[in-house]
Simulated scan of single mutants.
Amino acid sequence: MSPTPRPRAVDIAFWLLVVGAVLLVVNGLMAATLNFDTARSVADSSVSDEKLQNYLTFQRGLGIFSVVIGAVLGFLAGKTRTGDPRFRRATIAFAVAVMVLVVAVAILLKIIHLLALVAVLPIVFGALSLTRPGVAAWFAEDPRPVDG
């Protein structure tokens, strides 16, 4: 008996999560490469150089963190596509954590880029697609090939 073919919702979830992960990585790379001269040209003249440097350091740190979480989300999405139910649960949990973190940073610190907020949309729909009943049933069947 051949294993049940992968539901289309799993492929859709995979691609949505990959799009969200790529957007997070691009956002992080843009934030990590901010330079002082550009920031000084758009900052208010009353902002001291020290405060601006601290702001840039924090932005770069958030950018590197965004690259890391984007890469981890992409990795988890790829492993989920293979049919491992553990990775499905981990992907859903990590996607929810990323969504909460990005929105919380945007609301509380007010220093997130628009691209990171846009990345939340495909992540939301990708995670929701992994919770559909047909997808859950497919993962419960354990469609991974058995060795030996």
Score class of each variant (00 low, 15 high):
His113Asp: 09
Arg144Leu: 15
Ser45Gln: 13
Ala77Asp: 01
Thr4Pro: 07
Val10Ser: 07
Arg89Cys: 00
Asp84Tyr: 07
Leu73Asn: 11
Ala32Tyr: 05
Leu115Cys: 04
Ala13Leu: 10
Leu76Met: 13
Gly61Glu: 08
Leu34Arg: 13
Phe14Arg: 09
Ala95Pro: 03
Ile69Thr: 08
Ala77Gln: 00
Leu52Thr: 07
Val135Gln: 00
Ala106Lys: 00
Gly134Arg: 02
Ala95Lys: 00
Leu52Arg: 06
Gly70Leu: 00
Thr33Trp: 04
Ala71Tyr: 01
Gln53Trp: 03
Leu52Lys: 08
Phe14Tyr: 15
Val10Glu: 04
Arg86Val: 14
Ser66Asp: 13
Gly74Met: 08
Trp15Lys: 07
Val146Ala: 11
Ala31Cys: 06
Arg81Ala: 08
Ala136Arg: 05
Leu109Ile: 11
Ile123Pro: 04
Met30Gly: 12
Asp49Met: 12
Tyr55Arg: 07
Pro133Gln: 00
Ala106Gly: 15
Pro145Gln: 07
Asp142Lys: 15
Gly134Trp: 00
Met1His: 13
Thr80Glu: 06
Leu109Ser: 12
Leu115Ser: 06
Glu141Cys: 05
Arg60Gly: 15
Gly148His: 03
Lys79Val: 06
Pro143Gly: 06
Glu50Cys: 01
Leu16Ser: 09
Ser129Glu: 04
Arg86Gln: 12
Ala93Pro: 04
Ala77Thr: 03
Arg81Val: 05
Arg86Ser: 14
Pro5Tyr: 08
Phe75Pro: 03
Val96Met: 11
Ile92Phe: 10
Lys79Ile: 01
Gly78Cys: 05
Leu23Tyr: 05
Leu17Trp: 01
Ser48His: 10
Ala39Phe: 07
Leu128Glu: 02
Val146Lys: 14
Leu101Thr: 13
Ala43Pro: 06
Arg88Thr: 05
Ser48Met: 12
Leu17Ile: 11
Leu117Glu: 14
Leu115Phe: 08
Gly83Thr: 09
Phe87Ser: 13
Pro3Lys: 13
Asn27Lys: 02
Gly70Asn: 01
Ile92His: 03
Asp84Ala: 14
Leu23Pro: 09
Val25Ala: 10
Pro3Tyr: 10
Thr131Cys: 09
Ala97Val: 10
Ile12Glu: 04
Thr33Glu: 09
Leu29Ser: 09
Thr38Trp: 12
Arg144Phe: 00
Glu50Val: 15
Leu115Glu: 03
Glu50Ala: 15
Val124Arg: 01
Asp44His: 07
Val10Cys: 09
Leu117Ile: 14
Ile112Ser: 14
Asp142Thr: 13
Gly78Ser: 10
Val124Tyr: 10
Leu76Asn: 01
Pro145Trp: 02
Leu73Cys: 14
Met1Leu: 13
Ala39Asp: 04
Thr33Lys: 07
